[in-house]
Design a binder for these strands. Structure first.
Lengths: 187, 187
DNA sequence: CAGGTTGATTGCACTCAGTGGCATCACCGT
DNA sequence: ACGGTGATGCCACTGAGTGCAATCAACCTG
């Protein structure tokens, strides 16, 4: 077996997710992950900053899309609808084909407080990006931050519903209906 | 010196905050904190679950107040205003007297990504409590979560402004003005 | 006051995450 | 063939967090 097998990151990620699912995040050591991927422990840390990051690998790919979708919204659309439209666009392109992966991801995440903590960082950076895009559209400094966090909350509420096995609606649909439900109660 | 000096937790917390401020969070070891507090390293972990928790010690004291203030709001008040009123009430009682402490807290937090990550967990549990209180008032399941996160965002935006040295307004005032600015742009 | 109970503190040994430095290897262009 | 580049491997080290058992101060009870 050649030492230079391609796709080291992917192999590490697959090994990690499988082990996390089987044994739990805390009961899995980085050494085990590396061994299953046929790599060295040290190599794991060349690919991922820490043990938690491997779970979220490649999730920022959708973010330029998100931001440009927000910018593409007409000036007349209010900030929350603009942000939600961006999230729905990103969801359509990147989420709909991942149902199986999303289930595994959700299961692993739900089982580990440490991973849920890290996910909150992802939420926060997402909210920051959205807020910046909203500011560029002319929304006030503070209102942009609040609207961004509200939109992110809409997104995650929708994603939870989308992850339920019984669900048959698309993520974008769920985002829009959650958004309207929220806007309905605050006016 | 008796071995049984009272206030071990407080001493540990003071030692930790001072050291974090002087040297940074990552450059400070638990052993240093314990030594400065005149205690053993192991004792630190009997008082705090981990090195990050010491920074947030005693912050949940205001949460019953928050929840009861939300419940005390008239039925006619919309969810976001109810949540913000609760936050303002908690702010009035617990924050206004801590200006100096809040500055130190803010400085330490701003200097450490690890601590900001942990703070997001605090935000999330706060949002959960608010959402539960809103549901009890009759707000729909999903809208309650979104409104809660939006209210929490309002709170933290306001707290950031309140922490600025130039600021002269109370935290409750800032919460209300940020809230109205947000509600103004989403309608 | 002796003796027992309780809870806070201590000490030790251990696992494991994460890091720094350096060697090694595969591959690519010339 | 040769030098460069980047991915991988090895080793040793620091420090967080844990499990377990011993110790000690204070308090209670008879």
């Amino acid at each position: 077996m050649a030492r230079w097998e391609p796709g080291a990151s992917d192999r590490l990620r697959d090994a990690a997710m499988t082990l996390f699912d089987e044994q739990g995040f805390e009961n899995t050591t980085v050494a085990q992950i590396a061994e299953r991927a046929g790599l060295n422990r040290r190599t794991f840390f060349h690919h991922f900053a820490d043990k938690r990051e491997v779970v979220f690998a490649g999730q920022d790919a959708s973010e330029e899309l998100l931001v440009s979708a927000i910018r593409a919204q007409p000036e007349t659309v209010d900030p929350m609808r603009a942000a939600a439209a961006g999230l729905a666009a990103a969801a359509d392109t990147f989420y709909e084909q991942y149902r199986e992966g999303a289930e595994l991801f959700g299961r692993v995440l739900a089982a580990s407080p440490e991973l849920r903590e890290r996910e909150l960082v992802k939420r926060a950076t997402l909210a920051e990006k959205i807020a910046a895009a909203l500011r560029d559209r002319g929304t006030g400094e503070s209102a942009a931050v609040v609207a961004a966090w509200a939109a992110v909350a809409v997104f995650f509420v929708a994603r939870n519903q989308w992850n339920q096995p019984a669900n048959r609606r698309t993520l974008a649909e769920l985002i829009n209906s959650e958004l309207e439900e929220f806007l309905g109660v605050v006016t």
